[in-house]
Amino acid sequence: MNPVLEVKNLSVIYKTDMETVYAVNDISFSLEKGKTLGLVGETGAGKTTTALSILGLLPERTGQITSGRIVFEDAVLNELSRRELERIRGHRISMIFQDPMTALNPVLTVGDQIAEALELHNEEHLNKWAIEKKVEETLEMVGIPKERKNEYPHQFSGGMRQRVVIAIALVCNPGLLIADEPTTALDVTIQAQILTMICDLQRKYGTSVIMITHDLGVVAETCDQVAIVYAGEIVEYGSLLDIFGGGSHHPYTEGLFGSIPSLTGHAKRLQPIEGLLPDPTDLPAGCKFSPRCKYCTQLCRQKQPPIREQNGHQIRCHYTPDSRTITADAGTARKEDLE
C-alpha cells in the first residue's frame, strides 16, 4: 500500500542574525492510510517544527527546510507554491494546535467559523442553507448542542473550544490530520473524551493522523506507529508493540520510561535521565544523546550512530543492550550536574 505521507531526510533550521537553531535533523517516516503515527519527545525536540514543515507554515523569515522531501498523496509539498499549498491546507491536511484559542477567531461565532472552513473549500458547491445544516451536524458530531452555534469562543470552556477546533479541522474530511498536543491543556476526563472522539472520527472517515505529544500514555492509547524524537532526530521508531513491549530500546526511550511514576506498582525510586536537553544551536558531535547517556563511549562522542533495524523497529545507537555497558566516563552533562 502506498503511504499517504512520506517524509524523507527532513532537516529544518531557524536562522537569525544571532544564531542558527538546528531544530530538525534528518527525520524520515511514512504514514499509511487510516493509521496514526505518534511523534513523542520533550519540549524542543522538534515535533512542532516537523508539523509546521509539512503544512508549509514555518516562519517565513527564519524557518528553512535545508534538505529533504515531503510527499503527500501525489504532491511534493515542499516544492509547491504558496497558493497550491493553501489549497491543500485546511482541506486535505488539517491541524489541531495545543491552545485552541490561537486557532479560533475571538470575534466570530463558532458556527460562522465552521461555515467559513466549509466555504473556503466548497467543492460540493453547497448553498447557504446546506452549509448551515452541515455546521449544525458538525457541532453535534463533536458533542456540542447545535443551539450553541451563535456563541463566541470565550463563552466556551477549554474542552469545548478544542472540540470546535476539531470540528473545523475535520469538517472538510481531510486525508491527514496533524494533532499537536491536542489535549495537553485539558483535564484528564476531558482529554479522554477528546481522544476517543478523534479516534472515532478517524475510523469513520479513514483519516490518517500524526499525533504529537509528550505523554506516553496518550501514545499507547491512540497510535499504531511511534517515533521517539530527541534533539531533532528520531532515535527510535517502531510499532506500538516495539516501543511498549519488553524488547530492546534506545537509552533515551529507556530513560523516558524510567522517569514516569507507575500507576500500578509500588513507589520505586524514579530513574531519571541526568542532565538537560542539548543546546540546539550547538548540538554535540557524534550521538546527540551522548552527554546524557550512561552507556556513552569515546565512539559515541565522535561518530554519529547508525540506525539499526530489525523487522521495522529502528534504533539509532552504536550499541545493542547486549553490547553496551554503563561507562565510568559517561556523558559530560552527568558530571556537570554533580559538580
Binding site: G217, A220, E221, C223, D224, L240, F244, F257, I260, L263
Partner: peptide, 12 residues
C-alpha cells in the same frame, strides 16, 4: 479510568 496508561495493550 480516564488516565491514559503507557502500555502496549491500551490501544483502542
Amino acid at each position: 479510568a480516564a488516565i491514559p496508561v503507557p502500555s502496549a495493550d491500551s490501544r483502542h
